[in-house]
Nucleic acid binder design. Structure first.
Length: 397
DNA sequence: TCTGGGGTCCTAGGACCC
DNA sequence: TCTGGGGTCCTAGGACCC
Protein backbone atom coordinates (compact mmCIF):
# COMPACT_ATOMS: atom_id res chain seq x y z
CA UNK A 1 0.00 0.00 0.00
CA UNK A 2 1.40 3.39 -0.98
CA UNK A 3 1.69 6.14 1.58
CA UNK A 4 1.96 9.63 0.14
CA UNK A 5 2.25 12.92 2.02
CA UNK A 6 1.32 16.25 0.49
CA UNK A 7 2.85 19.10 2.45
CA UNK A 8 2.13 22.74 1.72
CA UNK A 9 3.01 25.91 3.52
CA UNK A 10 0.08 27.85 4.96
CA UNK A 11 -0.20 31.29 3.34
CA UNK A 12 3.31 30.70 2.03
CA UNK A 13 4.39 34.09 0.68
CA UNK A 14 2.80 35.93 3.58
CA UNK A 15 4.26 33.60 6.23
CA UNK A 16 7.69 33.81 4.69
CA UNK A 17 7.59 37.59 4.38
CA UNK A 18 6.39 37.79 8.00
CA UNK A 19 9.43 35.83 9.17
CA UNK A 20 11.76 37.90 7.01
CA UNK A 21 10.31 41.16 8.36
CA UNK A 22 10.63 39.95 11.97
CA UNK A 23 14.25 39.03 11.29
CA UNK A 24 14.81 42.53 10.01
CA UNK A 25 13.48 44.00 13.25
CA UNK A 26 9.93 44.79 12.09
CA UNK A 27 7.93 44.83 15.29
CA UNK A 28 4.67 43.35 14.05
CA UNK A 29 3.98 39.81 12.87
CA UNK A 30 2.01 40.50 9.71
CA UNK A 31 0.36 37.08 10.00
CA UNK A 32 -1.65 38.44 12.91
CA UNK A 33 -3.13 41.49 11.15
CA UNK A 34 -5.27 42.01 8.05
CA UNK A 35 -2.48 41.91 5.47
CA UNK A 36 -1.67 40.73 1.97
CA UNK A 37 1.36 40.26 -0.26
CA UNK A 38 0.75 42.03 -3.56
CA UNK A 39 2.55 43.62 -6.50
CA UNK A 40 2.85 47.31 -7.31
CA UNK A 41 -0.44 48.85 -8.42
CA UNK A 42 1.26 51.78 -10.15
CA UNK A 43 2.89 49.21 -12.46
CA UNK A 44 -0.44 47.40 -12.91
CA UNK A 45 0.84 44.43 -10.89
CA UNK A 46 -1.64 44.98 -8.08
CA UNK A 47 -2.84 41.44 -7.48
CA UNK A 48 -3.15 39.60 -4.16
CA UNK A 49 -0.50 36.86 -4.10
CA UNK A 50 -1.11 35.74 -0.51
CA UNK A 51 -3.27 36.76 2.41
CA UNK A 52 -3.26 36.41 6.19
CA UNK A 53 -5.97 34.36 7.89
CA UNK A 54 -7.61 37.56 9.12
CA UNK A 55 -7.73 38.91 5.57
CA UNK A 56 -9.33 35.65 4.57
CA UNK A 57 -12.08 36.29 7.10
CA UNK A 58 -12.82 39.54 5.29
CA UNK A 59 -13.44 37.49 2.16
CA UNK A 60 -10.20 38.49 0.45
CA UNK A 61 -9.09 35.91 -2.10
CA UNK A 62 -5.80 35.11 -3.78
CA UNK A 63 -5.52 36.61 -7.30
CA UNK A 64 -8.07 39.34 -6.74
CA UNK A 65 -7.11 42.96 -7.31
CA UNK A 66 -5.76 45.08 -4.49
CA UNK A 67 -8.47 47.56 -5.28
CA UNK A 68 -11.12 44.94 -4.59
CA UNK A 69 -9.29 43.63 -1.51
CA UNK A 70 -9.15 47.12 0.00
CA UNK A 71 -12.85 47.57 -0.58
CA UNK A 72 -13.42 44.53 1.65
CA UNK A 73 -11.09 45.72 4.43
CA UNK A 74 -10.06 49.35 4.64
CA UNK A 75 -7.31 48.70 7.24
CA UNK A 76 -5.61 46.25 4.94
CA UNK A 77 -1.81 46.39 5.04
CA UNK A 78 0.02 45.58 1.83
CA UNK A 79 3.55 44.18 1.56
CA UNK A 80 5.60 43.54 -1.59
CA UNK A 81 6.71 40.02 -2.55
CA UNK A 82 10.32 38.97 -2.08
CA UNK A 83 10.95 36.01 -4.35
CA UNK A 84 14.58 35.65 -3.35
CA UNK A 85 13.54 34.94 0.24
CA UNK A 86 10.75 32.63 -0.95
CA UNK A 87 13.18 30.52 -2.97
CA UNK A 88 15.53 30.26 0.01
CA UNK A 89 12.71 29.15 2.32
CA UNK A 90 11.46 26.68 -0.28
CA UNK A 91 14.93 25.16 -0.65
CA UNK A 92 15.40 24.80 3.12
CA UNK A 93 12.10 23.00 3.43
CA UNK A 94 12.96 20.69 0.53
CA UNK A 95 16.30 19.79 2.13
CA UNK A 96 14.46 19.02 5.36
CA UNK A 97 12.07 16.64 3.55
CA UNK A 98 15.02 14.78 2.05
CA UNK A 99 16.08 13.78 5.55
CA UNK A 100 12.93 11.59 5.67
CA UNK A 101 12.83 10.15 2.14
CA UNK A 102 14.67 10.59 -1.15
CA UNK A 103 11.31 10.45 -2.96
CA UNK A 104 10.31 14.12 -2.82
CA UNK A 105 8.56 15.86 -5.71
CA UNK A 106 8.49 19.66 -5.79
CA UNK A 107 5.01 20.46 -7.00
CA UNK A 108 5.33 24.22 -6.59
CA UNK A 109 7.42 26.69 -4.65
CA UNK A 110 5.50 25.88 -1.46
CA UNK A 111 4.26 22.32 -2.01
CA UNK A 112 5.89 18.90 -2.12
CA UNK A 113 4.78 15.29 -2.41
CA UNK A 114 6.69 12.76 -0.29
CA UNK A 115 6.52 9.02 -0.99
CA UNK A 116 6.84 7.19 2.33
CA UNK A 117 5.65 3.81 1.04
CA UNK A 118 8.97 2.12 1.65
CA UNK A 119 9.39 3.25 5.22
CA UNK A 120 7.27 0.43 6.69
CA UNK A 121 5.29 2.60 9.07
CA UNK A 122 2.04 1.29 10.53
CA UNK A 123 -1.03 3.51 10.42
CA UNK A 124 -0.54 5.00 13.87
CA UNK A 125 3.11 5.58 13.17
CA UNK A 126 2.28 7.41 9.94
CA UNK A 127 0.00 9.82 11.72
CA UNK A 128 2.54 10.26 14.47
CA UNK A 129 5.22 10.95 11.88
CA UNK A 130 3.05 13.61 10.20
CA UNK A 131 2.43 15.40 13.49
CA UNK A 132 6.11 15.18 14.35
CA UNK A 133 7.11 16.74 11.02
CA UNK A 134 4.50 19.46 11.33
CA UNK A 135 5.83 20.45 14.76
CA UNK A 136 9.46 20.23 13.66
CA UNK A 137 8.78 22.57 10.76
CA UNK A 138 7.02 25.02 13.07
CA UNK A 139 9.84 24.95 15.62
CA UNK A 140 12.77 24.92 13.22
CA UNK A 141 11.53 27.26 10.51
CA UNK A 142 8.85 29.35 12.21
CA UNK A 143 5.94 28.71 9.84
CA UNK A 144 3.08 26.22 9.74
CA UNK A 145 2.14 23.64 7.12
CA UNK A 146 -0.75 21.38 6.23
CA UNK A 147 -0.03 17.70 5.75
CA UNK A 148 -2.40 15.57 3.69
CA UNK A 149 -1.95 11.79 3.77
CA UNK A 150 -3.35 9.36 1.22
CA UNK A 151 -2.65 6.23 -0.76
CA UNK A 152 -1.89 8.29 -3.86
CA UNK A 153 -0.97 11.86 -4.80
CA UNK A 154 -4.51 12.93 -5.61
CA UNK A 155 -5.88 11.85 -2.23
CA UNK A 156 -2.93 13.32 -0.35
CA UNK A 157 -3.47 16.65 -2.06
CA UNK A 158 -7.21 16.63 -1.54
CA UNK A 159 -6.65 15.80 2.16
CA UNK A 160 -4.23 18.67 2.53
CA UNK A 161 -6.98 21.11 1.55
CA UNK A 162 -9.63 19.89 4.01
CA UNK A 163 -9.13 22.58 6.65
CA UNK A 164 -6.30 24.99 7.33
CA UNK A 165 -3.95 26.06 8.84
CA UNK A 166 -1.55 23.85 10.79
CA UNK A 167 -3.47 20.59 10.26
CA UNK A 168 -2.90 16.93 9.45
CA UNK A 169 -5.65 15.14 7.50
CA UNK A 170 -5.94 11.67 6.00
CA UNK A 171 -7.87 10.55 2.94
CA UNK A 172 -7.25 6.83 2.61
CA UNK A 173 -9.06 4.73 0.03
CA UNK A 174 -11.66 3.62 2.55
CA UNK A 175 -12.44 7.23 3.53
CA UNK A 176 -13.23 8.57 0.07
CA UNK A 177 -16.99 8.13 0.19
CA UNK A 178 -17.29 9.69 3.59
CA UNK A 179 -14.76 12.55 3.29
CA UNK A 180 -14.52 13.44 -0.40
CA UNK A 181 -17.78 12.58 -2.11
CA UNK A 182 -19.94 15.18 -0.31
CA UNK A 183 -17.69 18.04 -1.49
CA UNK A 184 -18.84 20.38 -4.28
CA UNK A 185 -17.49 19.48 -7.70
CA UNK A 186 -15.23 22.55 -7.81
CA UNK A 187 -13.17 21.12 -4.95
CA UNK A 188 -11.89 18.24 -7.06
CA UNK A 189 -8.38 18.69 -8.41
CA UNK A 190 -8.34 19.67 -12.12
CA UNK A 191 -11.99 20.67 -12.13
CA UNK A 192 -11.67 24.37 -12.85
CA UNK A 193 -14.17 27.05 -13.65
CA UNK A 194 -14.94 26.00 -17.19
CA UNK A 195 -15.38 22.29 -16.46
CA UNK A 196 -17.43 22.84 -13.32
CA UNK A 197 -19.85 25.11 -15.21
CA UNK A 198 -20.43 22.37 -17.78
CA UNK A 199 -20.77 19.69 -15.10
CA UNK A 200 -23.29 21.71 -13.12
CA UNK A 201 -25.31 22.29 -16.27
CA UNK A 202 -25.51 18.49 -16.48
CA UNK A 203 -26.75 18.39 -12.89
CA UNK A 204 -23.46 17.02 -11.58
CA UNK A 205 -22.91 19.08 -8.47
CA UNK A 206 -20.86 17.02 -6.04
CA UNK A 207 -17.83 14.79 -6.37
CA UNK A 208 -20.16 11.89 -5.61
CA UNK A 209 -22.35 12.81 -8.61
CA UNK A 210 -19.29 12.71 -10.85
CA UNK A 211 -17.95 9.49 -9.31
CA UNK A 212 -21.21 7.74 -10.15
CA UNK A 213 -21.90 9.41 -13.48
CA UNK A 214 -22.36 7.47 -16.70
CA UNK A 215 -19.11 7.38 -18.65
CA UNK A 216 -20.71 7.33 -22.09
CA UNK A 217 -23.06 10.21 -21.38
CA UNK A 218 -20.19 12.40 -20.16
CA UNK A 219 -17.94 11.40 -23.06
CA UNK A 220 -20.11 13.41 -25.41
CA UNK A 221 -19.11 16.53 -23.50
CA UNK A 222 -15.60 15.87 -22.24
CA UNK A 223 -14.12 13.42 -24.77
CA UNK A 224 -10.93 11.75 -23.59
CA UNK A 225 -10.86 13.70 -20.33
CA UNK A 226 -13.94 11.83 -19.08
CA UNK A 227 -12.19 8.70 -17.84
CA UNK A 228 -9.68 10.73 -15.83
CA UNK A 229 -12.38 12.91 -14.33
CA UNK A 230 -14.42 9.93 -13.13
CA UNK A 231 -11.32 8.16 -11.82
CA UNK A 232 -10.30 11.24 -9.84
CA UNK A 233 -13.78 11.51 -8.38
CA UNK A 234 -13.32 7.93 -7.19
CA UNK A 235 -9.94 8.75 -5.70
CA UNK A 236 -8.07 6.76 -8.34
CA UNK A 237 -4.70 8.11 -9.44
CA UNK A 238 -1.60 6.05 -10.18
CA UNK A 239 0.81 8.84 -11.05
CA UNK A 240 4.16 8.47 -9.32
CA UNK A 241 6.01 10.81 -7.03
CA UNK A 242 8.78 11.98 -9.33
CA UNK A 243 11.87 13.05 -7.44
CA UNK A 244 13.64 14.41 -10.51
CA UNK A 245 15.81 17.40 -9.90
CA UNK A 246 13.45 18.98 -12.38
CA UNK A 247 14.53 19.96 -15.86
CA UNK A 248 11.80 22.22 -17.18
CA UNK A 249 9.93 21.47 -20.39
CA UNK A 250 9.63 25.14 -21.11
CA UNK A 251 10.96 28.41 -19.76
CA UNK A 252 9.04 31.63 -20.09
CA UNK A 253 9.14 35.24 -19.05
CA UNK A 254 6.38 37.79 -19.42
CA UNK A 255 5.68 41.26 -18.20
CA UNK A 256 2.60 43.39 -17.82
CA UNK A 257 3.62 46.81 -19.08
CA UNK A 258 2.90 50.01 -17.19
CA UNK A 259 0.79 51.19 -20.13
CA UNK A 260 -0.74 49.64 -23.25
CA UNK A 261 1.43 50.26 -26.27
CA UNK A 262 2.23 49.31 -29.85
CA UNK A 263 5.56 51.12 -29.88
CA UNK A 264 7.69 48.74 -31.93
CA UNK A 265 11.09 49.81 -30.61
CA UNK A 266 9.91 49.65 -27.02
CA UNK A 267 8.39 46.18 -27.45
CA UNK A 268 11.40 44.84 -29.31
CA UNK A 269 13.66 46.09 -26.56
CA UNK A 270 11.55 44.25 -24.00
CA UNK A 271 11.80 41.09 -26.09
CA UNK A 272 15.56 41.42 -26.36
CA UNK A 273 15.97 41.72 -22.60
CA UNK A 274 13.77 38.65 -22.17
CA UNK A 275 15.83 36.69 -24.73
CA UNK A 276 18.95 37.55 -22.75
CA UNK A 277 17.44 36.45 -19.43
CA UNK A 278 16.00 33.25 -20.89
CA UNK A 279 19.24 32.60 -22.76
CA UNK A 280 21.24 32.99 -19.56
CA UNK A 281 18.86 30.60 -17.82
CA UNK A 282 19.24 28.01 -20.60
CA UNK A 283 23.00 28.37 -20.56
CA UNK A 284 23.12 27.91 -16.81
CA UNK A 285 21.12 24.67 -17.17
CA UNK A 286 23.07 23.56 -20.24
CA UNK A 287 19.90 23.46 -22.30
CA UNK A 288 19.15 24.45 -25.91
CA UNK A 289 15.76 25.51 -27.23
CA UNK A 290 14.24 24.13 -30.41
CA UNK A 291 11.06 26.22 -30.31
CA UNK A 292 10.49 29.84 -29.40
CA UNK A 293 7.29 31.83 -28.99
CA UNK A 294 6.10 35.36 -28.35
CA UNK A 295 3.06 35.63 -26.10
CA UNK A 296 0.92 38.73 -25.78
CA UNK A 297 -2.16 39.98 -23.99
CA UNK A 298 -3.94 42.86 -25.66
CA UNK A 299 -5.64 45.84 -24.06
CA UNK A 300 -8.85 43.78 -24.34
CA UNK A 301 -7.28 40.97 -22.28
CA UNK A 302 -7.15 38.65 -25.22
CA UNK A 303 -4.20 36.24 -25.28
CA UNK A 304 -2.35 35.33 -28.45
CA UNK A 305 0.88 33.56 -29.19
CA UNK A 306 3.00 32.69 -32.18
CA UNK A 307 5.78 30.18 -32.19
CA UNK A 308 8.43 28.90 -34.51
CA UNK A 309 10.85 26.02 -34.73
CA UNK A 310 14.47 27.08 -34.51
CA UNK A 311 16.55 25.44 -37.26
CA UNK A 312 19.58 24.84 -35.03
CA UNK A 313 18.65 24.65 -31.37
CA UNK A 314 20.29 27.44 -29.41
CA UNK A 315 20.72 29.20 -26.10
CA UNK A 316 22.53 32.15 -27.60
CA UNK A 317 20.82 35.46 -26.85
CA UNK A 318 21.14 36.99 -30.30
CA UNK A 319 20.09 33.74 -32.00
CA UNK A 320 16.99 33.62 -29.82
CA UNK A 321 16.28 37.25 -30.55
CA UNK A 322 16.74 36.76 -34.28
CA UNK A 323 14.04 34.07 -34.22
CA UNK A 324 11.78 36.25 -32.10
CA UNK A 325 12.05 39.01 -34.69
CA UNK A 326 10.95 36.53 -37.39
CA UNK A 327 7.56 36.12 -35.70
CA UNK A 328 7.27 39.64 -34.33
CA UNK A 329 5.04 41.15 -37.01
CA UNK A 330 2.69 38.15 -37.23
CA UNK A 331 2.20 38.23 -33.48
CA UNK A 332 1.92 41.90 -32.66
CA UNK A 333 -0.04 43.05 -35.72
CA UNK A 334 -1.73 46.30 -34.75
CA UNK A 335 -2.71 45.28 -31.26
CA UNK A 336 -2.29 47.51 -28.26
CA UNK A 337 -0.13 45.37 -26.02
CA UNK A 338 -0.75 45.05 -22.30
CA UNK A 339 1.51 42.09 -21.57
CA UNK A 340 4.33 40.64 -23.61
CA UNK A 341 6.49 37.57 -23.11
CA UNK A 342 8.89 35.04 -24.58
CA UNK A 343 8.66 31.28 -24.12
CA UNK A 344 11.14 28.60 -25.20
CA UNK A 345 10.22 24.91 -25.34
CA UNK A 346 11.41 21.63 -26.87
CA UNK A 347 14.46 21.93 -24.65
CA UNK A 348 17.33 19.56 -25.34
CA UNK A 349 20.71 18.99 -23.71
CA UNK A 350 22.82 18.79 -26.83
CA UNK A 351 23.77 21.25 -29.49
CA UNK A 352 23.38 20.58 -33.17
CA UNK A 353 26.47 22.02 -34.80
CA UNK A 354 25.33 21.57 -38.35
CA UNK A 355 26.54 24.67 -40.12
CA UNK A 356 24.73 25.71 -43.23
CA UNK A 357 26.86 26.05 -46.34
CA UNK A 358 25.24 29.32 -47.14
CA UNK A 359 25.36 30.87 -43.70
CA UNK A 360 28.19 33.09 -42.73
CA UNK A 361 28.04 31.29 -39.45
CA UNK A 362 29.96 32.66 -36.53
CA UNK A 363 27.79 31.20 -33.81
CA UNK A 364 30.62 29.25 -32.23
CA UNK A 365 32.49 32.45 -31.70
CA UNK A 366 29.33 34.10 -30.37
CA UNK A 367 29.01 31.32 -27.83
CA UNK A 368 32.48 31.96 -26.46
CA UNK A 369 31.79 35.66 -26.03
CA UNK A 370 28.47 34.77 -24.42
CA UNK A 371 30.16 32.48 -21.93
CA UNK A 372 32.58 35.20 -20.86
CA UNK A 373 29.71 37.65 -20.36
CA UNK A 374 27.68 35.09 -18.40
CA UNK A 375 30.56 34.45 -16.04
CA UNK A 376 30.97 38.15 -15.36
CA UNK A 377 27.24 38.59 -14.82
CA UNK A 378 27.14 35.58 -12.53
CA UNK A 379 29.90 37.12 -10.45
CA UNK A 380 28.42 40.60 -10.21
CA UNK A 381 24.73 39.61 -10.27
CA UNK A 382 22.14 40.23 -12.90
CA UNK A 383 22.89 41.69 -16.30
CA UNK A 384 25.66 44.11 -15.44
CA UNK A 385 27.29 43.56 -18.79
CA UNK A 386 25.46 43.17 -22.04
CA UNK A 387 25.78 44.16 -25.65
CA UNK A 388 25.32 47.90 -26.21
CA UNK A 389 22.07 47.23 -28.06
CA UNK A 390 20.49 46.22 -24.70
CA UNK A 391 20.90 49.69 -23.39
CA UNK A 392 17.64 51.61 -23.58
CA UNK A 393 18.58 55.24 -23.83
CA UNK A 394 15.07 56.32 -22.89
CA UNK A 395 14.99 54.42 -19.65
CA UNK A 396 18.64 54.31 -18.71
CA UNK A 397 18.75 50.64 -17.84
C1' DT B 1 -4.57 52.80 -9.96
C1' DC B 2 -9.21 46.73 -12.31
C1' DT B 3 -7.69 42.17 -13.85
C1' DG B 4 0.40 38.93 -12.24
C1' DG B 5 3.56 35.44 -13.63
C1' DG B 6 5.41 30.71 -14.40
C1' DG B 7 4.33 26.32 -15.65
C1' DT B 8 1.95 21.53 -17.87
C1' DC B 9 -1.12 19.14 -20.77
C1' DC B 10 -4.70 18.56 -24.35
C1' DT B 11 -7.18 19.33 -28.76
C1' DA B 12 -8.56 20.88 -33.33
C1' DG B 13 -7.13 21.80 -37.66
C1' DG B 14 -3.80 22.48 -41.48
C1' DA B 15 0.25 20.90 -44.18
C1' DC B 16 2.50 17.29 -46.04
C1' DC B 17 3.77 12.53 -47.31
C1' DC B 18 2.84 8.01 -49.23
C1' DT C 1 -12.25 12.62 -63.76
C1' DC C 2 -16.08 14.17 -58.12
C1' DT C 3 -13.34 15.21 -54.06
C1' DG C 4 -9.38 8.06 -50.40
C1' DG C 5 -7.25 7.65 -46.13
C1' DG C 6 -3.68 6.84 -42.67
C1' DG C 7 0.19 8.83 -40.29
C1' DT C 8 3.10 12.55 -38.60
C1' DC C 9 4.41 17.07 -37.57
C1' DC C 10 3.30 21.61 -36.39
C1' DT C 11 0.64 25.66 -34.61
C1' DA C 12 -2.79 28.29 -31.96
C1' DG C 13 -5.68 28.36 -28.34
C1' DG C 14 -7.66 26.84 -24.09
C1' DA C 15 -7.98 24.68 -19.42
C1' DC C 16 -5.84 23.86 -15.37
C1' DC C 17 -2.41 24.25 -11.48
C1' DC C 18 0.29 27.18 -8.00
Amino acid sequence: MNIIFHIDVNNAFLSWSAIDLLNQGYKEDIRLIPSVIAGDESKRHGIVLAKSNISKQYGIKTAETLHSARSKCKDLQVFPPNFKIYKEMSNKLYEYFLTYTPDVERYSIDECFLDLSNTNFLYDDILELAYKMKEEIKNNFGFTVNIGIGNNKLCAKMAGDFSKPDKVHTLFSNEIKEKMWPLPIEDLLYIGKSTSLKLRSLNINTISDLANANLNTLKKHFKNQTTFMIEYANGIDDSKVISKSGKNKSISLSETLEFDTNDKEFLKHKLLIMCEKIGANLRKENLYAKTIAITIKTNYFKNYSHQKKIVNQTNNTMELYKNVLDIYEDTIKNYLIRNIGVRVSDLVTYKNNQISLFDNNNSLEDDKIQEVLDNINLKYQDLKIMPAIFYDKNKGN
